[in-house]
């Protein structure tokens, strides 16, 4: 357990509702058999990124088995907070019983905010400034009706509780490498309801350049190579991008598939690669090495290398597996989807 910090609890949340991409294609007269994913999650009427985050964090707490009041850091990464001004972190912390000795803040960096929250918590715990840290990536992403984003913009959350390195943890973070440039591939201006994106510009100069930059950077610094990892997780705005970037970096389908869920849940933005990591942890064995590389528009990537610890076996059953949330699904049509997303004027 040599490393920077350990994850002692992890958890995820997916809302119950699903819409098939083919249903969205039907409404806009597009070919239902050539959609970027199969289906995506949709939050219920009483949900938002904050309530998603609460449940993911609760699951992480169940596995961490610590008194919530011992947590001294809460970072919530999201681009869809219910308030533009007023932190989600305070409400989540109050509901979980973490307040008031606490360093809590919301973070925004498009889809990268989840891993950024994690690394920020890791930093404070590693520095000895906090005993435990809670990091959450959560989103209820919105695509403008009719826009290409609408097929994939989904909802979900993942949370991690970090401590100093310890062998009874779930996993230990051994290295991290971040890669950031000014690349406007996707944005939302203040006061605008929906984001805009640069279409094909979101690919090569944005997603691929940053993920490859971070992954290669981490492997160069640590001397690790793709074959050293049992699993790899990439940010997953669709199925095509992570599949392609894995291949370009030299990872196999077997390494990738456990952590690639976008085909059946959509792009959960700040939660996307963290939820992939959760699904990997739901299956991993002690000693397994995992690489996770996020990507957030604007743009930047965090690459993190983890090694699974002995504690995973005992901690894993203490909260629902991601598969429970995947199986818990109810399909809705486009009209109900519009109602749930608040797109119907009343």
């Amino acid at each position: 357990m040599n490393g920077i910090a350990s994850i002692i609890g992890y958890g995820a949340y997916l809302p119950r509702y699903r819409i098939k991409a083919a249903e969205i294609a039907r409404v806009y007269g597009r070919n239902p058999s050539s959609t970027p994913i199969k289906e995506k999650t949709v939050p219920g009427l009483d949900e938002d990124s904050l309530t998603h985050a609460y449940e993911a964090a609760l699951n992480a707490l169940r596995r961490a088995e610590i008194d919530p009041s011992e947590i001294e850091v809460v970072f919530v990464g999201s681009e869809s907070p219910p308030y533009a001004v007023k932190p989600s972190a305070t409400i989540i912390a109050e509901a979980l019983g973490i307040t008031p000795k606490l360093y809590a803040v919301d973070m925004e960096f498009a889809c990268r905010a989840g891993t950024t929250a994690l690394l920020s918590a890791v930093g404070l715990v590693h520095a000895g400034l906090a005993r435990y840290g809670l990091a959450i990536g959560t989103d209820t992403a919105q695509g403008r009706p009719g826009d290409a984003l609408e097929y994939t913009a989904a909802a979900g959350a993942a949370a991690f509780i970090v401590s100093k390195p310890r062998s009874d943890a779930v996993a230990t973070i051994e290295a991290a490498y971040s890669y950031v440039t000014d690349t406007p591939d996707f944005w939302r201006r203040e006061g605008q309801r929906f984001p805009r994106h640069g279409a094909r510009f979101t690919g090569e100069p944005a997603y691929f350049a940053h993920i490859i930059g971070a992954a290669k950077g981490l492997m160069e610094e640590t001397g690790l190579k793709p074959s050293d990892f049992r699993y790899v997780v990439f940010h997953q705005p669709n199925v095509k991008f992570p599949t392609r970037v894995a291949k370009r970096l030299g990872f196999t389908k077997e390494q990738l598939e456990r952590g690639l869920l976008s085909g059946i849940i959509g792009n959960t933005y700040a939660a996307a690669s963290p939820i992939g990591l959760v699904n990997v942890l739901d299956a991993a064995e002690p000693g397994d090495r995992i690489l996770i590389v996020s990507f957030g528009s604007g743009a930047g990537s965090d690459a993190i290398s983890l090694v699974v610890e002995d504690g995973i076996t005992e901690r894993r059953p203490k909260a629902p597996l991601l598969s429970s949330y995947i199986e818990r699904s109810k399909e809705i049509d486009y009209a109900l989807y519009l109602r749930f997303r608040g797109f119907i004027c009343r």
Binding site: N59, R62, K318, P320, S324, R328
Partner: peptide, 8 residues
């Protein structure tokens, strides 16, 4: 109740 563990 969502299945698969979660006993508190």
């Amino acid at each position: 109740v969502v299945g698969g563990g979660g006993e508190q």
